[in-house]
Every structure is written in structure tokens, then in C-alpha cells.
């Protein structure tokens, strides 16, 4: 066999240290950033609460609903597409589910099921239009965003006469379903939201899907070079449409969680959240042009948002600075990520 002769090591290949290997991971920059931000907020904390279990429950409560959607937004971005309608979909799903319950007397479970089907349909339409028209997903889903934003208000007013859906707690299975989607659990002296468990679960699922399944390989390939992927036999269209559907359904799940937790929903819920998802994904090392990124990274990005949302008021700074802070974090994180990956890939310095 040729193996014996070829087995001699190539002297031009340098040693790869464990640190370099770690730095090559897309979420490395985000993790480093999260640690720095955590330490910083712990240092400026005036309440002494930030690092306690209660503080942790606070920031995970903020981060979890963002993280659940951001993981799928990240997968979609790795496949080379955006979904700007993911934020408003949270509202659409919550309102629709709420109206199914309060106006038509569905049980929570039935309403959830119907809403999920609708969300899958919206995701499918997004994906189908992107593929069929060849228009950038940025435009197609921006259109969906506005269509749904308008419909959320109009349809809610039409059926309820107000801009709010309420009365879902009248449903017979309200408490039972709340136990899955909107309850709290106690750790030590702190009340954690059940969404935190969903968030962790979704992150594990997303990571597994991306790195340990054939579908994950197709996600990377579709975003890295759709032509090469197609030529190699990857079903690029199916992969992308599936991801649009998943993203939309993840948003709907979060919508259902908010609906049950708040016992109702405002028509404007979710609008603007799409940027949080994209920021979380980008901060987590997902390339905006597709082809690289990670699910864990997106979750770390969401965690950073939670840290800022809780850390800033704990430091007695004006809450209004949260967005400014996130803007600075987004810019620095993407810059650091780009720098690290360039250094670590070692190809083009």
C-alpha cells in the first residue's frame, strides 16, 4: 500500500497548539466576551445581587426567549439566509393562539398545535419565495415582517375590538400547559423560568443538529458555497426551506410561552426582537455571509444580552443605555471574531 511511503510527516505542517484549536471555534470570541462582561458587571454591581442565584435567574429569564429563537436564526444564517420576520412571528403566534382560545374556545393544546402549523406555513412561504424568486431573503422576510406586523394589529382589533388578546387563563388546560411552557422552578432561594430549560435544550439540539447530523453538514455547505453543495448532491433548497420553517416555529414557541406567562398578549409584541436574534448570532461567531458559525455561540450572544439587561440597572445606570451597550458589543464582538478566525485559520494573515 502507498500508506507506508506517504506516512512520513510533511515538515511544512506546523504544530497546532490546543489553544489555537480552541480559538478556531467560532464561539470562542463570544465566550471570552461573556466572561469579561460578567466580571465587569459583577464589579460595578451596587446591589450585591448580580452573581447570586437570584441575579442569575434574572439574566437567564431575559436571555432564554432570545436564545431559543437565536439558535435557529444562527442555523439559518449559517445556511446563508436571514429571517427578519422571526421577531414579529413571536407576536403573531401569541395573538393567534390567544384568539383561538378566547374567541373560538380552543383548548391551549389545540391552539398551540394550530399555531405551530400556521408558523410552519409562514416559514415555508418565506423559504419558498426566497428560492423561487431568487430575491435576497433580507427583502423577502422584511416584507413578511411588515405584512405580519400590520395583520397583527388589524386582525386583533377586528376580533377583540382592542389591541390586546386576553382571557386565555379561562381555558381548561391552562395550568397544565403552563407547567410546560411558562412556569418557574426553584433553585436555592431563586425562581428560575422554565424557558431557561427550553433554552438549554434548544441549544443542545441546535448544536447536535449542526455538528452531528448530515443535515448539519448540508447547512454549512448550503451557506458556504451553494453551487458546490448542489454539485456535490446536497439538497440545498430543502435544507434552506426546512430552516425557515424551524426558525418560524421556534418564534411561535416563544410566542406561546409569552402568551401563557402574561395570560394575554399585546399586538405589538415581538416587533424589533429579530435584531436581537441576529445580534446574538453574529456576536456568537456566525458569519453574516453564511458558511460558518455555531448554535452555542448564538446562545452565548443571548446570554450577553441578558447580562447587560440585568447588569446595567444593578449598576444603577440608566436602563436606556442597554441598547447602546449592545451596539458596542455587536461591533467589537464581530471585529474580534473576524480577527481571531483570521489568525487561527492561519491562511491569510
Amino acid at each position: 500500500m502507498a500508506e507506508k511511503t506517504a506516512a512520513k510527516t510533511d515538515e511544512r505542517i506546523g504544530r497546532v497548539s490546543a489553544i489555537t484549536k480552541m480559538m478556531r471555534r467560532p464561539e470562542f470570541g463570544a465566550l471570552l466576551g461573556a466572561i469579561v462582561i460578567y466580571v465587569m458587571f459583577a464589579a460595578v454591581d451596587t446591589t450585591g445581587m448580580f452573581t447570586t442565584l437570584n441575579g442569575t435567574a434574572g439574566w437567564t429569564d431575559f436571555a432564554a426567549p432570545i436564545g431559543i429563537v437565536a439558535v435557529f436564526v444562527a442555523l439559518l444564517m449559517i445556511a446563508g439566509e436571514f429571517d427578519l420576520s422571526s421577531g414579529v412571528m413571536v407576536g403573531t403566534a401569541g395573538l393567534m393562539m390567544g384568539m383561538f382560545i378566547s374567541e373560538w374556545g380552543f383548548t391551549i393544546l389545540q391552539a398551540l398545535f394550530a399555531t405551530m402549523i400556521f408558523a410552519a406555513f409562514v416559514g415555508f412561504v418565506n423559504g419558498y419565495l426566497v428560492i423561487k424568486t431568487g430575491l435576497p431573503s433580507f427583502i423577502v422576510t422584511l416584507a413578511t415582517f411588515f405584512v405580519l406586523k400590520g395583520a397583527n394589529l388589524a386582525v386583533t382589533k377586528m376580533f377583540t375590538g382592542t389591541v390586546r388578546v386576553s382571557g386565555v387563563d379561562q381555558a381548561e388546560d391552562f395550568e397544565a400547559m403552563r407547567a410546560f411552557l411558562a412556569t418557574t422552578f426553584t433553585v436555592g432561594d431563586a425562581q428560575f423560568q422554565i424557558t431557561t430549560i427550553w433554552w438549554i435544550g434548544v441549544t443542545i439540539f441546535g448544536t447536535w443538529l449542526l455538528t452531528r447530523t448530515t443535515f448539519g453538514n448540508w447547512i454549512f455547505a448550503s451557506g458556504g458555497d451553494a453551487n458546490a453543495a448542489r454539485n456535490a448532491g446536497v439538497p440545498v433548497i430543502r435544507t434552506k426551506i426546512t430552516l425557515f420553517v424551524m426558525t418560524s416555529m421556534a418564534a411561535a414557541l416563544v410566542g406561546a410561552m409569552f402568551l401563557l406567562r402574561l395570560r394575554g398578549m399585546q399586538a405589538g409584541q415581538g416587533v424589533g426582537q429579530e435584531f436581537y436574534y441576529i445580534i446574538a448570532a453574529a456576536v456568537g461567531g456566525t458569519l453574516l455571509t453564511g458558511g460558518a458559525g455555531s448554535a452555542i455561540g448564538a446562545s452565548i450572544g443571548a446570554a450577553i444580552m441578558g447580562l447587560a439587561a440585568i447588569g446595567i440597572p444593578y449598576a444603577l445606570w440608566d436602563q436606556d443605555w442597554v441598547s447602546t451597550f449592545l451596539g458596542v458589543i455587536l461591533f467589537s464582538a464581530v471585529m474580534v471574531n473576524t480577527f481571531i478566525s483570521r489568525r487561527a485559520s492561519g491562511a491569510r494573515k
Binding site: T213, T214, F215, N217, G224, A228, A232, G233
Partner: peptide
């Protein structure tokens, strides 16, 4: 090939080896 993907992932693009039950798509 897809430049950003690792060598082994590129080697198996579109023809990924699976384990357990094939339709599950476990890489």
C-alpha cells in the same frame, strides 16, 4: 469544495456516513 468547511466535512458533502438508523441522519 466549500472553502470554510473542514476537510473531512468536504470529503463527505452530500454523501455523509451515518450510524444507527439511516433516516435519522446521524453523522
Amino acid at each position: 469544495t466549500v472553502p470554510l468547511m473542514s476537510v473531512w466535512r468536504n470529503f463527505f458533502i452530500g454523501n455523509e456516513p451515518t450510524k444507527w438508523w439511516k433516516p435519522l441522519g446521524l453523522l
